[in-house]
Structures are given as structure tokens and as C-alpha cells.
């Protein structure tokens, strides 16, 4: 464990909590892509199957449980409790265009052809594109509430810190997980455009982030 990975995990947790509390307190999921949240729940489900078979540390186990619980709780808020405020019209990204290539690639490019390993690889590839429906929805509506942009900021920060974590681990331990790194770089690139808008608009106190 290193400070980059730890702070990355904390940012990830903060992002998920920001989103959950926003929906819970505003009793609305307007502007939130339910599809992205479904994909994240699928990412955690397919990645954390080793929750009961491989014990790594208390921290690892606790964080996995927390991420799974919050992911499913957020999905249930969107699709059940506050479904009247779910804007399915704007959340129109075709997730099958993500799931099919990701599933195909996880069968082709993996470390070992076992169910657990293929599902883990699937979760790694899926996570790198899971945010796209949300980013697409923002471009479609042309705006995002500032709290939603803070959610995206912490999510992007978590991914950026993980890149630093991999540089550190390669330098310190010679550890290099090619699938995770390549997929993580792709994922972080998707946030670059958002980061630009976030720093130039939201942090200038313009409240909402409205796209040009």
C-alpha cells in the first residue's frame, strides 16, 4: 500500500458518497446517468467475487463491501425510490456498445483463462468506459449541477492517483499490471475534457457547469 493508492481509494469513496448523498438529500436523480451507476455496480460485482475466497487485508475486505453496498444502494435510489426523477430520455447511451466489446476483449486479452480471472479482466475493461453514459448525458443536457461535477472530479482524481500508484509500485516493487495500467490510462483520458471544463468553469464559481 502507498499514499497514492490510499488517497485514490479515499477519493473513490468520497465520490461515491457525494453522489449517494446528493440523490438521497435532494430526493432526485435528475442529471444522473443510471446506466453509469449500473455499470459501476457490475464492475464491483465482477471484480470483488474473490471477497470470500481471497483474504488480503481488513482494509481490502471492508472497502470492497462498502463499495458494493453503496453502488447497489445508489442504483436502487435511481431505479426504484426516486425513479420518477430519473431522466431516461437523456440517459440514452447504448451500453451494449460498451458491454459487447469489453466482454469480447476480456476473453481475448487476459492473464489466465479462468472464470474468476476473465470476470476480473471484464471488470477492469468495463470500469474504463463505465463513466461514458454519464459524460454523454451531460453533453446531451448541456449542463451538470455543480455537485455532480464534484462527484466526477473525485472520480477522476481517484483514477489519476491510481496512475501515480502504478508509477510508484513499478519504481519501488517492479510491479506492473499491464491490463490494469492500459485500461486505467484510457479511463483517465476520458476525464481530461471534463477536468478542463471543471477547472475553467465550475471552480470559477459559476455554479453549474454549462457546456459551450
Amino acid at each position: 500500500m502507498n499514499i497514492f493508492r490510499l488517497s485514490g481509494d479515499v477519493c473513490h469513496l468520497v465520490a461515491i458518497i457525494i453522489l449517494f448523498l446528493k440523490i438521497w438529500r435532494s430526493k432526485s436523480c435528475a442529471g444522473i446517468s443510471g446506466k453509469s451507476q449500473l455499470l459501476f455496480a457490475l464492475v464491483f460485482t465482477t471484480r470483488y467475487l474473490d471477497l470470500f475466497t481471497a483474504f488480503i487485508s481488513i482494509y481490502n475486505t471492508v472497502m470492497k463491501v462498502v463499495f458494493l453496498v453503496l453502488a447497489y444502494a445508489t442504483v436502487s435510489l435511481i431505479y426504484f425510490r426516486f425513479r420518477k426523477s430519473y431522466d431516461s430520455e437523456s440517459d440514452s447511451f447504448r451500453v451494449e456498445f460498451l458491454l459487447v466489446p469489453v466482454a469480447g476483449l476480456s476473453f481475448l486479452e487476459n492473464y489466465s483463462f479462468t472464470p474468476l480471472e476473465i470476470l476480473w479482466t471484464f471488470s477492469i475493461y468495463l470500469e474504463s468506459v463505465a463513466i461514458l453514459p454519464q459524460l454523454f448525458m451531460i453533453t446531451k443536457t448541456g449542463e451538470a449541477e455543480s455537485i455532480t461535477t464534484h462527484y466526477l472530479f473525485f472520480l477522476g482524481l481517484y483514477r489519476t492517483l491510481y496512475l501515480a500508484n502504478w508509477v510508484w509500485r513499478y519504481h519501488e516493487e517492479g510491479f506492473f499490471d499491464q491490463i490494469a495500467v492500459v485500461s486505467g490510462v484510457v479511463q483517465t483520458i476520458f476525464y481530461c475534457d471534463f477536468f478542463y471544463l471543471y477547472f475553467t468553469r465550475v471552480l470559477r464559481g459559476s455554479g453549474k457547469m454549462t457546456l459551450p
Binding site: 493508492r5 489466465s112 483463462f113 479462468t114 476480473w120
Partner: peptide, 10 residues
């Protein structure tokens, strides 16, 4: 296919 790497990251 070399061996699966340790899965210690979240």
C-alpha cells in the same frame, strides 16, 4: 498466458 497477478488493488 502467464500467471494471474496478485489482486491486492480495489
Amino acid at each position: 498466458d502467464d500467471d494471474a497477478l496478485p489482486k491486492d488493488e480495489l
